[in-house]
Amino acid sequence: MKYLILLIAILMSGCATNVESIKDDKDVLVQEDSGYLLLGIDSTMSLKSIVLEGPQNIRITHKDLTEGSNHILLALKAGDYQLTQIEFSNYYKTDVDDREYWTFSITPGEINYAGDIELRTKWFVRSLRFNMELINNSSIALDFLKTNFPTILSSKSIAYGGPGEDDYLHLWSEKSL
């Protein structure tokens, strides 16, 4: 029995929790060690899920991953996260290589924009080919928040948390642009 519990514990620790993006413009950050993650997805096909690993392992599901351009706002524990897996459908998935280029960080109490995952897919003789890149579209993300989450945006500062350094959102928050 104790081995079964151990096995469950091990399996559970590797599992990602399904999450859904925040829909209501209400500040839901209650814990001090958490922050908001804003992630853009611009994909030529709908996706089944994407997995992020970090202080929390989470799975963003197909409900937020329809074809086209979308933004996903989540409240997560602060820390560094990596994109580790993309499931295109029930039958196709890929593990992400070069993870250092797919890493972003969440600072507590802030809105952290990670970038837009641009995914271009193509079917070729029953195989799925794809290209993906994490593009920093900070100003578009800011427009999204202004339109859809003005309350959260007015109560929290916003910063770029994706690969590389970019002060634009931070300067906007400080009203020093």
Binding site: Y101, G115, E133, L134, I135, N136, G164, D166, D167
Partner: peptide
């Protein structure tokens, strides 16, 4: 500065 952080591959 954004030229260096336009994309993860940059």
């Amino acid at each position: 500065p954004y030229l260096f952080s336009s994309s993860n591959f940059h």
